[in-house]
Every structure is written in structure tokens, then in C-alpha cells.
């Protein structure tokens, strides 16, 4: 496996994401720039310029026409994916940490920070798929989080039925996707341990969380029951589910300020692969020399990209050995 190194950013990566067809890879970092790459060969297609601060999050819409982004400049922006042109900006009192489209692409959600007297919120805007058309100015839904319990990450469930949010206190909430009513709130991670990442399965019926408490958990969207958990020895920043194989990929590492004396080894800057069902660790991929901040897997499961504190995106295309790996029980089961 020969990774492709993408050097489009000068500062730490914050999120990487594939589009639905998996041919494009988007990356954002603290350096204000959004990059888009062809995932097959790592060629940079373009950049979306306009954010005035760190960009925290991006999401391409399912039809790959619109790109939504959010950042420390307190805005959510909508871009023409093809040309890089900015066509809508929504402003907020605080930074935006997550954006995500519904699976029909008609709504986008965003989470805003709690700061300076403003409580954290989750906002939902309808999106007009026509780039030339008019976009709304006001959100169709606004969920206000309790103080000290802001939503760090949020995602849509299947059919936009629920909004699932991961909070800074380590709990996960389920909100009605239409009314914003909180239906469930379950402590999932250690109290007070930030949930750093949340990624939905392809059909958005379950999701994986990654937390500073060094664990990742797979949770049922409907009940918020914990289905699987993965314990590691390092604070986690990101967790991704793989398509095609029943694996998960976790990334993290001691923060730079805690690693002073050291080679990359002690910081544990490795992507860790676990078996999704058996919860065993099955391998690691080295390469970054800062903590891994974000990991995304190709929707068809053929490659994955990781973005690090070191400013690099590393794009890995799996080779045969990866696809061949199977537990004995899976094999016998497969034969039946």
C-alpha cells in the first residue's frame, strides 16, 4: 500500500470527506482553505477560498453540486462545487463545528459553539438545490443546547428522521429531525470527555463516536444502545466505519503539547484498524507525525484518507491483503 501525500494545507487538518460517488475528496484545515482532490490519483482539482478563519467542517451534498462548510469565522458557507464559487453565507455569533446534508440534500445542519454568553445550538436550513436560485436566510429549526453541554458533532439519521448529536459532556442525544424535540439523551462516553467525531453508517442506521476518553463506540440510531466499543490507549479524535469490510478505523494521539521528548512512536500517530464485530485490533498504519485529526473512508471501501495535526492528508488505497482478511468464523459463514 503506497499512500499518496496531499500537501494542500499549511496547518492542522480538521476534516476530510469523500463525496457520495467517492471520486472526490475534500479536506479542510485551520489554514482557512478548502481543497478538493480526485481520490483516485490525489490530483488537486481546486480550492474554495473565502473563509476568514480556521475551517472546521465540510460536507458535499449527495449529488455533488454543492459544498457546505463551516468555520471559526462564525459562518456556514455554500459553494458551487464545480467552480469554487461562494454563493451563500449564513452568519452566527460563534464558530461552526459541524455541517451535514440530509441524504436527499434538501437540508443542511450545523452546530455552533457555546461562547461569550451564547449557548451552543444545532441549526437546520433548507437548501435550494438550484445554485442560481434563492436561498433562505433563516433556519427552519434551531435547537439550543444546555449550558456546558454544547453539541460538538451532529449528524442526520436515515431519512432525516432524527438528528443525532454528540455533546461535550460525553453524552449523545437524539432529536426529532422535524421538530427538534429531544427524544433521548444517553451518557455514552466518560463524563466530561469530549466526543470528537461521529460518523454514520452508509444507511444511517447506526454510527460510531470517537472520544477523548480513548474509546470509540458504535451506537444504534433508533435506541442509542451501545452496540460495540473499542478501547485504545490514546485520546481519539476520529473514527470511521469502512464499507465492504466490517472494520472501523480510529485515529488520535497525544496532543503535541503533551509529547515533548519524543519520536512519533510515543505520540501513537497511527491509524488503528479494529474489527467492527469482534472488537479486536487488527492492525495499524503509520505515517503521520502529529495526531490524526480526521479519517474518512471511500463510500465503496476502496481507500481511506487521514488528515493529521502535521498538516498532511494521506490517501491510502487498500490492496489485496486488506480485502482478503477474514476471521475463520466469517469464512465458514460465507461458505454456507
Amino acid at each position: 500500500m503506497r499512500p499518496i501525500l496531499l500537501q494542500g494545507h499549511e496547518r492542522a487538518l480538521t476534516q476530510v470527506k469523500y463525496n457520495k460517488d467517492g471520486d472526490l475528496l475534500f479536506s479542510v484545515s485551520k489554514d482557512h482553505v478548502i481543497c478538493v482532490w480526485y481520490s483516485q490519483n490525489g490530483e488537486r482539482l481546486g480550492t474554495y477560498n473565502g473563509h476568514q478563519g480556521a475551517v472546521w467542517t465540510i460536507d458535499p451534498n449527495p449529488s455533488s453540486t454543492i459544498l457546505a462548510s463551516g468555520g471559526a469565522d462564525n459562518t456556514i458557507r455554500l459553494w458551487d462545487m464545480k467552480t469554487g464559487k461562494l454563493f451563500k453565507t449564513w452568519e452566527f455569533p460563534t464558530a461552526v463545528k459541524r455541517v451535514e446534508f440530509t441524504e436527499d440534500g434538501l437540508f443542511v445542519l450545523g452546530t455552533t459553539e457555546e461562547r461569550m454568553g451564547h449557548l451552543g445550538t444545532i441549526v437546520v436550513y433548507p437548501v435550494n438545490p438550484d445554485i442560481e436560485g434563492e436561498q433562505v436566510n433563516e433556519p427552519s429549526l434551531r435547537i439550543v443546547c444546555e449550558t456546558k453541554k454544547k453539541a460538538v458533532v451532529a449528524a442526520w439519521s436515515y431519512l432525516g428522521k432524527y438528528i443525532i448529536a454528540g455533546h461535550e459532556d460525553g453524552s449523545v442525544s437524539q432529536y426529532d429531525g422535524k421538530t427538534g424535540e429531544q427524544l433521548l439523551n444517553v451518557p455514552v462516553h466518560e463524563r466530561g470527555m469530549l466526543i470528537m467525531d461521529m460518523q454514520m453508517s452508509a444507511d444511517k442506521t447506526y454510527f460510531i463516536t470517537a472520544s477523548k476518553d480513548k474509546s470509540a463506540k458504535i451506537i444504534d440510531v433508533k435506541t442509542l444502545n451501545i452496540l460495540k466499543k473499542f478501547e485504545t490507549d490514546t485520546p481519539l479524535n476520529t473514527a470511521a466505519l469502512t464499507a465492504k469490510k466490517e472494520f472501523v478505523i480510529l485515529g488520535g494521539g497525544q496532543e503535541a503539547m503533551n509529547v515533548t521528548t519524543t519520536s512519533a512512536r510515543q505520540g501513537k500517530f497511527e491509524a488503528r484498524f479494529y474489527h467492527k464485530i469482534f472488537e479486536d485490533e487488527i492492525g495499524r498504519v503509520r505515517g503521520h507525525f502529529g495526531p490524526l485529526n480526521t479519517i474518512a473512508v471511500h463510500p465503496a471501501g476502496v481507500s481511506y484518507a487521514s488528515g493529521g495535526e502535521d498538516g498532511y492528508v494521506r490517501l491510502h488505497h487498500f490492496d489485496k491483503g486488506y480485502f482478503d482478511f477474514m476471521y475463520e468464523v466469517e469464512r465458514t459463514r460465507a461458505q454456507h
Binding site: R2, G42, G283, G321
Partner: peptide, 15 residues
Amino acid sequence: STTTVGENILFKPSL
């Protein structure tokens, strides 16, 4: 300037 190929990584999942 933005895209380079890294060194080969042997990665084979295994218990």
C-alpha cells in the same frame, strides 16, 4: 507540489 507518493507501507490486517 501538492501530490506525492509516499513510501510503501505493508499493511495486512491480522490478529
